[in-house]
């Protein structure tokens, strides 16, 4: 007891601290920590990294995208649940902004404000942005929503517990709770169609080609060319979601 014990235990403490620190550094350097720390990293460079472009100047608000998405993906027809929907923004001459989305745009849009009072008006189709740093995957407590290796944010319906945290976390409002299945649901970029070599339904039926998608890694793809030639924006860039849905001619009124 006394001085000797203090000196010897200090040396032992320093030895054991150095051993622990050294082994922690060594463990991380060797890379075996990836088996303990789960992170979404693109595993193979050969897979596509999907992005989406919506051209607001081409959207005519026909609502075919919203209608066909509901049919393809077994979404109930009530006007509360949409994987994709169209909004109409009308900026009047007095500066007020009206935003309408009657049944998601499925039944089309009736012009509400007479021509002479309108300063500008446009349609904005919305869908899941398939963010690369998506808030919804961060908040899921069980790992039921995730970014696939192709960059598509998907939901594991068997694993979701229906806590609704992701619905709250998404800043774009594109998630909902399926009334029958009672779990979260959202646009999957028609993952089941992409795997068969087909286009997502909203892109397939859009009559003007306002919706485009493609491989962001492929320099020759239509979407990469479009992004180079046009000025595009994402919704809510200040939230740093890494959104991969780029809008052409996005106006500042769009929320």
């Amino acid at each position: 007891m006394g001085n000797e014990r203090v000196k010897s235990s200090r040396r032992k403490f320093l030895k054991s601290a150095a051993t622990i620190a050294g082994s922690a550094i060594g463990f991380n350097l060797l890379g075996s920590s990836r088996y303990l720390v789960f992170a979404a990293e693109p595993k193979e460079e050969a897979l596509p990294w999907y992005g989406i472009v919506i051209d607001i100047e081409k959207c005519i608000g026909c609502g075919k995208c919203a209608k066909s998405c509901k049919i393809e993906n077994d979404v109930p027809q009530e006007p509360f649940f949409f994987r994709t929907w169209v909004e109409q923004y009308t900026v009047e001459n007095n500066g007020s902004v009206d935003i309408i989305s009657p049944n998601g745009g499925i039944d089309g849009f009736e012009q509400q404000v007479p021509d002479e009072e309108v300063f500008k008006s446009f349609f904005v189709p919305k869908m899941c942005n398939h963010c690369s740093k998506s808030p919804c995957t961060q908040v899921c407590p069980v790992g039921a929503t995730f970014e696939s290796p192709e960059g598509i944010t998907l939901i594991d319906e068997k694993y979701c517990i229906g806590c609704r945290y992701c619905v709250q976390a998404c800043p774009y409002g594109c998630r909902f709770i399926h009334p029958v299945k009672k779990v979260a649901n959202k646009c999957t970029l028609c993952y089941h169609r992409l795997k068969k070599g087909l286009d997502p339904v909203c892109m397939e039926v859009c009559p003007t080609g306002a919706r485009m998608y493609g491989n962001l890694r492929d320099k020759d793809s239509k979407i990469v060319k479009f992004l180079k030639e046009h000025t595009t924006h994402v919704l809510r860039p200040n939230l740093n979601t890494g959104s991969k849905l780029y809008y052409n001619a996005l106006s500042m009124e769009v929320r």
Binding site: Y35, F38, A39, A40, E41, K43, S68, I71, E72, N73, D74, G143, A144, T145, F146, E147, S148, P149, L154, D156, E157, K158, Y159, T188, Y191, H192, R193, K195, K196, L198, D199, V201, E204, V205
Partner: peptide, 26 residues
């Protein structure tokens, strides 16, 4: 299959891909 590609069940990718197709394409 949990942790196969990330913090999720790797088998759900295959399950999502099994959804039946309604639109055939042009």
């Amino acid at each position: 299959t949990f942790g196969q590609y990330g913090f999720y069940r790797g088998a759900s990718l295959e399950e999502t891909a099994q959804t039946p197709v309604m639109y055939a394409g042009q």
